[in-house]
Protein backbone atom coordinates (compact mmCIF):
# COMPACT_ATOMS: atom_id res chain seq x y z
CA UNK A 1 0.00 0.00 0.00
CA UNK A 2 2.77 2.29 1.00
CA UNK A 3 4.68 1.47 -2.19
CA UNK A 4 1.49 2.15 -4.25
CA UNK A 5 1.10 5.63 -2.77
CA UNK A 6 4.74 6.45 -3.32
CA UNK A 7 4.41 5.40 -7.00
CA UNK A 8 1.34 7.65 -7.35
CA UNK A 9 3.30 10.59 -5.97
CA UNK A 10 6.14 9.85 -8.42
CA UNK A 11 3.64 9.77 -11.35
CA UNK A 12 2.13 13.07 -10.26
CA UNK A 13 5.60 14.59 -10.01
CA UNK A 14 6.34 13.43 -13.55
CA UNK A 15 3.13 15.05 -14.86
CA UNK A 16 3.84 18.42 -13.22
CA UNK A 17 5.36 20.79 -15.81
CA UNK A 18 7.06 24.05 -14.97
CA UNK A 19 4.54 26.89 -14.94
CA UNK A 20 6.95 29.48 -16.42
CA UNK A 21 9.28 28.64 -19.29
CA UNK A 22 12.61 30.36 -19.22
CA UNK A 23 12.56 32.99 -21.99
CA UNK A 24 14.89 32.59 -24.97
CA UNK A 25 18.07 34.61 -24.73
CA UNK A 26 17.19 36.65 -27.83
CA UNK A 27 13.76 36.75 -29.37
CA UNK A 28 13.24 38.32 -32.79
CA UNK A 29 9.51 38.43 -32.07
CA UNK A 30 9.99 40.60 -29.01
CA UNK A 31 12.33 42.88 -30.92
CA UNK A 32 9.69 43.13 -33.66
CA UNK A 33 7.02 44.12 -31.12
CA UNK A 34 9.30 46.77 -29.62
CA UNK A 35 10.20 48.03 -33.07
CA UNK A 36 6.55 48.25 -34.14
CA UNK A 37 5.56 50.12 -30.99
CA UNK A 38 8.48 52.56 -31.44
CA UNK A 39 7.44 53.07 -35.05
CA UNK A 40 3.86 53.86 -33.99
CA UNK A 41 5.09 56.11 -31.20
CA UNK A 42 7.23 58.14 -33.64
CA UNK A 43 4.55 58.31 -36.32
CA UNK A 44 2.15 59.73 -33.73
CA UNK A 45 4.67 62.54 -33.22
CA UNK A 46 3.61 63.75 -36.71
CA UNK A 47 6.98 62.96 -38.20
CA UNK A 48 5.69 62.54 -41.72
CA UNK A 49 4.52 66.15 -41.93
CA UNK A 50 8.03 66.78 -43.19
CA UNK A 51 6.97 65.09 -46.44
CA UNK A 52 4.72 68.02 -47.33
CA UNK A 53 7.66 70.42 -47.02
CA UNK A 54 9.77 68.02 -49.05
CA UNK A 55 7.16 67.86 -51.82
CA UNK A 56 7.03 71.67 -51.99
CA UNK A 57 10.83 71.82 -52.12
CA UNK A 58 11.07 69.33 -55.00
CA UNK A 59 8.32 71.08 -56.95
CA UNK A 60 10.06 74.43 -56.38
CA UNK A 61 13.38 72.95 -57.52
CA UNK A 62 11.78 71.53 -60.65
CA UNK A 63 10.50 75.00 -61.54
CA UNK A 64 13.75 76.79 -60.81
CA UNK A 65 15.52 77.82 -63.99
CA UNK A 66 18.47 80.18 -63.81
CA UNK A 67 19.40 79.86 -67.49
CA UNK A 68 19.98 76.19 -66.82
CA UNK A 69 20.86 73.70 -69.49
CA UNK A 70 18.46 70.70 -69.69
CA UNK A 71 20.96 68.57 -67.77
CA UNK A 72 21.34 71.22 -65.08
CA UNK A 73 17.58 71.42 -64.61
CA UNK A 74 17.47 67.73 -63.75
CA UNK A 75 20.60 67.98 -61.68
CA UNK A 76 19.06 70.70 -59.48
CA UNK A 77 16.09 68.43 -58.72
CA UNK A 78 18.41 65.55 -57.86
CA UNK A 79 20.68 67.70 -55.70
CA UNK A 80 17.88 69.45 -53.84
CA UNK A 81 16.00 66.23 -53.19
CA UNK A 82 18.99 64.24 -51.98
CA UNK A 83 20.15 67.19 -49.88
CA UNK A 84 16.72 67.53 -48.25
CA UNK A 85 16.59 63.78 -47.63
CA UNK A 86 20.00 63.93 -46.02
CA UNK A 87 19.05 66.84 -43.73
CA UNK A 88 15.77 65.18 -42.72
CA UNK A 89 17.32 61.81 -41.99
CA UNK A 90 20.23 62.97 -39.84
CA UNK A 91 18.11 65.49 -37.96
CA UNK A 92 15.50 62.83 -37.33
CA UNK A 93 18.08 60.21 -36.36
CA UNK A 94 19.49 62.50 -33.67
CA UNK A 95 16.29 63.95 -32.26
CA UNK A 96 14.07 60.86 -32.40
CA UNK A 97 16.68 58.60 -30.80
CA UNK A 98 17.46 61.21 -28.16
CA UNK A 99 13.85 61.43 -26.95
CA UNK A 100 13.04 57.70 -26.95
CA UNK A 101 14.44 56.53 -23.62
CA UNK A 102 13.53 59.72 -21.68
CA UNK A 103 9.98 59.53 -23.16
CA UNK A 104 9.63 55.89 -22.06
CA UNK A 105 10.82 56.90 -18.60
CA UNK A 106 8.38 59.79 -18.46
CA UNK A 107 5.45 57.61 -19.61
CA UNK A 108 6.56 54.79 -17.26
CA UNK A 109 6.50 52.45 -20.25
CA UNK A 110 10.12 51.60 -19.58
CA UNK A 111 9.27 50.05 -16.18
CA UNK A 112 6.42 48.02 -17.71
CA UNK A 113 8.72 46.66 -20.38
CA UNK A 114 11.77 45.98 -18.25
CA UNK A 115 9.82 44.26 -15.45
CA UNK A 116 8.86 41.63 -18.02
CA UNK A 117 11.40 39.09 -19.19
CA UNK A 118 12.71 41.40 -21.89
CA UNK A 119 16.49 41.58 -22.03
CA UNK A 120 17.78 45.11 -22.14
CA UNK A 121 19.66 44.43 -25.35
CA UNK A 122 16.36 43.59 -27.05
CA UNK A 123 14.85 46.79 -25.75
CA UNK A 124 17.69 48.84 -27.23
CA UNK A 125 17.72 46.94 -30.53
CA UNK A 126 13.93 47.27 -30.83
CA UNK A 127 14.06 51.00 -30.17
CA UNK A 128 16.90 51.53 -32.65
CA UNK A 129 15.17 49.48 -35.34
CA UNK A 130 11.98 51.47 -34.77
CA UNK A 131 13.83 54.72 -35.47
CA UNK A 132 15.49 53.18 -38.53
CA UNK A 133 12.11 51.93 -39.79
CA UNK A 134 10.66 55.45 -39.64
CA UNK A 135 13.70 56.88 -41.43
CA UNK A 136 13.53 54.08 -44.01
CA UNK A 137 9.81 54.57 -44.71
CA UNK A 138 10.19 58.37 -44.90
CA UNK A 139 13.16 58.04 -47.28
CA UNK A 140 11.27 55.53 -49.43
CA UNK A 141 8.29 57.90 -49.69
CA UNK A 142 10.52 60.86 -50.50
CA UNK A 143 12.44 58.79 -53.03
CA UNK A 144 9.21 57.71 -54.71
CA UNK A 145 7.90 61.26 -54.86
CA UNK A 146 11.03 62.76 -56.31
CA UNK A 147 11.48 59.89 -58.78
CA UNK A 148 8.02 60.60 -60.19
CA UNK A 149 8.73 64.34 -60.50
CA UNK A 150 12.16 63.67 -61.98
CA UNK A 151 10.69 61.24 -64.50
CA UNK A 152 8.05 63.72 -65.69
CA UNK A 153 10.58 66.51 -65.88
CA UNK A 154 13.00 64.31 -67.83
CA UNK A 155 10.30 63.27 -70.32
CA UNK A 156 9.17 66.84 -70.90
CA UNK A 157 12.73 68.19 -71.24
CA UNK A 158 13.70 65.48 -73.75
CA UNK A 159 10.54 66.11 -75.79
CA UNK A 160 11.16 69.86 -75.86
CA UNK A 161 14.86 69.43 -76.76
CA UNK A 162 14.08 66.96 -79.56
CA UNK A 163 11.48 69.35 -80.97
CA UNK A 164 13.97 72.21 -80.87
CA UNK A 165 16.77 70.17 -82.46
CA UNK A 166 14.50 68.78 -85.18
CA UNK A 167 13.86 72.34 -86.36
CA UNK A 168 17.58 73.09 -86.69
CA UNK A 169 19.21 71.37 -89.71
CA UNK A 170 22.63 71.63 -88.05
CA UNK A 171 21.73 68.71 -85.78
CA UNK A 172 21.83 65.19 -87.16
CA UNK A 173 19.94 62.15 -85.92
CA UNK A 174 23.13 61.12 -84.12
CA UNK A 175 23.23 64.48 -82.30
CA UNK A 176 19.64 64.08 -81.19
CA UNK A 177 20.29 60.56 -79.88
CA UNK A 178 23.42 61.74 -78.01
CA UNK A 179 21.56 64.70 -76.46
CA UNK A 180 18.63 62.51 -75.39
CA UNK A 181 21.06 60.00 -73.83
CA UNK A 182 22.90 62.76 -71.98
CA UNK A 183 19.67 64.15 -70.54
CA UNK A 184 18.38 60.66 -69.69
CA UNK A 185 21.60 60.01 -67.72
CA UNK A 186 20.30 62.51 -65.15
CA UNK A 187 16.84 60.98 -64.94
CA UNK A 188 15.77 58.41 -62.37
CA UNK A 189 18.21 55.49 -62.17
CA UNK A 190 19.63 52.85 -59.85
CA UNK A 191 22.41 55.19 -58.74
CA UNK A 192 19.87 57.47 -57.11
CA UNK A 193 18.69 54.53 -55.02
CA UNK A 194 22.30 53.95 -53.99
CA UNK A 195 22.47 57.63 -53.00
CA UNK A 196 19.35 57.24 -50.85
CA UNK A 197 20.82 54.07 -49.33
CA UNK A 198 24.01 55.97 -48.42
CA UNK A 199 21.87 58.66 -46.75
CA UNK A 200 20.04 55.94 -44.81
CA UNK A 201 23.27 54.23 -43.71
CA UNK A 202 24.70 57.51 -42.46
CA UNK A 203 21.61 58.26 -40.39
CA UNK A 204 21.55 54.69 -39.08
CA UNK A 205 25.09 55.07 -37.72
CA UNK A 206 24.15 58.46 -36.28
CA UNK A 207 21.08 56.95 -34.59
CA UNK A 208 23.30 54.27 -33.03
CA UNK A 209 25.64 56.98 -31.71
CA UNK A 210 22.65 58.88 -30.29
CA UNK A 211 21.45 55.64 -28.67
CA UNK A 212 24.79 55.20 -26.93
CA UNK A 213 24.78 58.79 -25.69
CA UNK A 214 21.18 58.54 -24.48
CA UNK A 215 22.00 55.49 -22.32
CA UNK A 216 24.12 57.64 -20.02
CA UNK A 217 22.68 61.10 -20.74
CA UNK A 218 20.74 62.99 -18.13
CA UNK A 219 18.43 64.70 -20.64
CA UNK A 220 17.38 64.63 -24.30
CA UNK A 221 19.01 67.99 -24.87
CA UNK A 222 22.35 66.65 -23.67
CA UNK A 223 22.03 63.69 -26.07
CA UNK A 224 21.16 65.97 -29.00
CA UNK A 225 24.08 68.32 -28.36
CA UNK A 226 26.67 65.59 -27.81
CA UNK A 227 25.51 63.57 -30.83
CA UNK A 228 25.56 66.66 -33.01
CA UNK A 229 29.10 67.42 -31.89
CA UNK A 230 30.13 63.82 -32.66
CA UNK A 231 28.43 64.18 -36.06
CA UNK A 232 30.42 67.32 -36.83
CA UNK A 233 33.70 65.82 -35.66
CA UNK A 234 32.91 62.74 -37.75
CA UNK A 235 32.99 64.92 -40.85
CA UNK A 236 36.48 66.21 -40.07
CA UNK A 237 37.99 62.72 -40.07
CA UNK A 238 40.04 63.17 -43.22
CA UNK A 239 41.24 66.62 -42.20
CA UNK A 240 42.11 65.34 -38.73
CA UNK A 241 43.95 62.33 -40.15
CA UNK A 242 45.93 64.55 -42.52
CA UNK A 243 46.73 67.02 -39.75
CA UNK A 244 47.60 64.78 -36.82
CA UNK A 245 48.57 61.49 -38.35
CA UNK A 246 50.05 62.19 -41.78
CA UNK A 247 51.63 65.61 -41.17
CA UNK A 248 52.49 64.72 -37.53
CA UNK A 249 51.45 68.19 -36.31
CA UNK A 250 51.23 69.11 -32.60
CA UNK A 251 52.77 67.52 -29.53
CA UNK A 252 52.52 63.81 -28.82
CA UNK A 253 49.60 64.28 -26.40
CA UNK A 254 47.63 66.18 -29.07
CA UNK A 255 48.49 63.52 -31.62
CA UNK A 256 47.43 60.74 -29.26
CA UNK A 257 44.10 62.45 -28.52
CA UNK A 258 43.65 62.97 -32.25
CA UNK A 259 44.31 59.31 -32.99
CA UNK A 260 41.91 58.15 -30.26
CA UNK A 261 39.21 60.48 -31.62
CA UNK A 262 39.73 59.14 -35.14
CA UNK A 263 39.37 55.56 -33.89
CA UNK A 264 36.39 56.15 -31.60
CA UNK A 265 34.29 58.56 -33.69
CA UNK A 266 32.77 57.21 -36.92
CA UNK A 267 33.87 58.69 -40.25
CA UNK A 268 30.61 60.17 -41.53
CA UNK A 269 32.29 61.63 -44.59
CA UNK A 270 32.56 58.16 -46.08
CA UNK A 271 28.77 58.05 -46.50
CA UNK A 272 28.63 61.41 -48.29
CA UNK A 273 28.46 60.00 -51.79
CA UNK A 274 24.97 61.28 -52.56
CA UNK A 275 26.45 64.66 -53.59
CA UNK A 276 28.53 63.03 -56.31
CA UNK A 277 25.68 60.71 -57.31
CA UNK A 278 23.34 63.65 -57.79
CA UNK A 279 25.97 65.18 -60.09
CA UNK A 280 25.92 62.06 -62.24
CA UNK A 281 28.78 59.96 -60.81
CA UNK A 282 28.24 56.21 -61.00
CA UNK A 283 28.65 53.88 -58.03
CA UNK A 284 28.98 50.10 -58.15
CA UNK A 285 26.99 47.49 -56.24
CA UNK A 286 30.17 46.11 -54.64
CA UNK A 287 30.97 49.54 -53.16
CA UNK A 288 27.47 49.80 -51.72
CA UNK A 289 27.73 46.31 -50.20
CA UNK A 290 31.05 47.27 -48.63
CA UNK A 291 29.58 50.51 -47.30
CA UNK A 292 26.58 48.65 -45.86
CA UNK A 293 28.96 46.21 -44.17
CA UNK A 294 30.88 49.08 -42.60
CA UNK A 295 27.63 50.66 -41.39
CA UNK A 296 26.57 47.29 -39.91
CA UNK A 297 29.88 47.10 -38.05
CA UNK A 298 29.30 50.59 -36.63
CA UNK A 299 25.74 49.66 -35.63
CA UNK A 300 26.96 46.50 -33.93
CA UNK A 301 29.72 48.30 -32.06
CA UNK A 302 27.58 51.16 -30.82
CA UNK A 303 24.68 48.87 -29.89
CA UNK A 304 26.98 46.65 -27.82
CA UNK A 305 28.48 49.72 -26.18
CA UNK A 306 24.95 51.04 -25.44
CA UNK A 307 23.93 47.69 -23.97
CA UNK A 308 27.04 47.65 -21.83
CA UNK A 309 26.10 51.01 -20.28
CA UNK A 310 22.36 50.26 -20.13
CA UNK A 311 22.57 46.67 -18.85
CA UNK A 312 22.69 47.48 -15.13
CA UNK A 313 21.42 51.03 -15.19
CA UNK A 314 18.95 51.67 -12.39
CA UNK A 315 15.85 53.78 -12.90
Amino acid sequence: MASDSSEQVRDQTKRVEPLVKSPPIFSAQRVWVLMASTFTQLVRMKTFYFLAIFALLVIAASNLNLLYTPVQQLKVIRETSLGAMSIFSWLFAITATAVLIPRDLEDRTLYTILCKPVPRLEYLVGKLLGVLAVIGVALALMCGLFTVILHFQETSIIASEMHHMAQNPRFTEEDRITEAAMIAAYGPDLNLLYGVLAVFLKSAVLAAVAMLVSTFASSSLFTIIITFVVFLIGHFHKMATDFWVVEQQGGWITRMIGKVMILVIPDFQIFNISDSISSGQVVGLATMVEMSGLAALYLGLFTIASWFVFSDKEF
Binding site: E79, T80, G83, F236, Q269, S274, S278, S279
Partner: peptide, 9 residues
Protein backbone atom coordinates in the same frame (compact mmCIF):
# COMPACT_ATOMS: atom_id res chain seq x y z
CA UNK B 1 31.65 69.20 -44.81
CA UNK B 2 28.35 67.77 -43.60
CA UNK B 3 27.62 66.20 -46.97
CA UNK B 4 25.57 69.06 -48.33
CA UNK B 5 27.99 70.19 -51.02
CA UNK B 6 25.30 70.14 -53.69
CA UNK B 7 22.95 72.30 -51.62
CA UNK B 8 25.73 74.79 -50.91
CA UNK B 9 26.52 74.83 -54.61
Amino acid sequence: LGGLRSLVS
